[in-house]
């Protein structure tokens, strides 16, 4: 019943999905943290930029963001992000798009985490002579991160599934293969769906379980 599977490189396609997810997750966490820093910074222009960025980018559908990476950034502006073959270029463009988009959700999760850190923590740090960056880096963000592991997990799981949008610019991840298989194996269409659904569950479940455990361990006791 499942012999059709052997004709396709399903593992290879999911491996691309994993790579998209991992690179995008790292980028989003970094850029999202910087954005959150901007949104709470004492410098008005940074706060304005952070606020505008988050509110605009998270309002644009992801498909649009990804397509604009390909059509706008690559084909119109000629950015290749250091890639030479089309598959590499598209992969990098997709990662960039996911980072730009997902970071807004990382930023907002973190910002709500920052609000859970009592003001006194930052005051005590400032009273010791730490500057704004140090206070944020050493005192506020470590505590904020621990309190938002739950929401961040949801963001990362959403990101994993969102990587399917990369198929719109031809990145050969799982969902692109699925479309192909749906056309070629229309007699077992249900099985094709199930296979890919299971694949995503297998990818995302451990993220939830692992981070759930981390969250339990890392809780800041007050």
């Amino acid at each position: 019943m499942f012999d059709f599977l052997t004709e396709y490189d399903i593992l290879g396609a999911f491996w691309v999905t994993v790579q998209l997810t991992v690179y995008s997750a790292i980028g989003s966490l970094l850029w999202g943290t910087i954005l959150a820093g901007m949104r709470v910074s004492p410098v008005p222009i940074m706060r304005a930029f952070g606020g505008a960025y988050v509110n605009i980018v998270r309002s644009i559908p992801l498909t649009l963001v990804i397509i604009s990476m390909s059509l706008g950034l690559n084909q119109t502006l000629g950015a290749a992000l250091g890639g030479d073959v089309l598959t590499t270029i598209n992969f990098r463009l997709a990662v960039l798009g996911f980072v730009l988009y997902t970071s807004t959700f990382v930023c907002e999760s973190l910002r709500s985490g920052i609000n859970t850190v009592p003001v006194g923590q930052a005051e005590a740090a400032r009273a010791l002579g730490l500057n704004f960056g140090q206070v944020l880096r050493m005192i506020v963000l470590p505590q904020a991160f621990r309190s938002v592991i739950g929401p961040l997990t949801s963001v990362l799981i959403a990101l994993t599934k969102n990587t399917t949008v990369a198929s719109t610019i031809g990145v050969a991840e799982a969902s692109l293969l699925m479309s192909e298989m749906i056309e070629n194996e229309s007699d077992v269409i249900g099985l094709v769906f199930m296979t890919f659904a299971m694949g995503f569950v297998i990818l995302t479940l451990p993220i939830g379980l692992l981070l759930g455990r981390v969250a339990k361990k890392a809780t800041v006791k007050r």
Binding site: P118, R126, G129, R146
Partner: peptide
């Protein structure tokens, strides 16, 4: 920041870094 480093402060709520 440099001035604050020279001025010790103790708060009502202690404000020890919880983590």
């Amino acid at each position: 920041a440099a001035l604050r480093a020279d001025v010790g402060m103790v708060f009502q709520q202690f404000n020890l870094f919880s983590h």
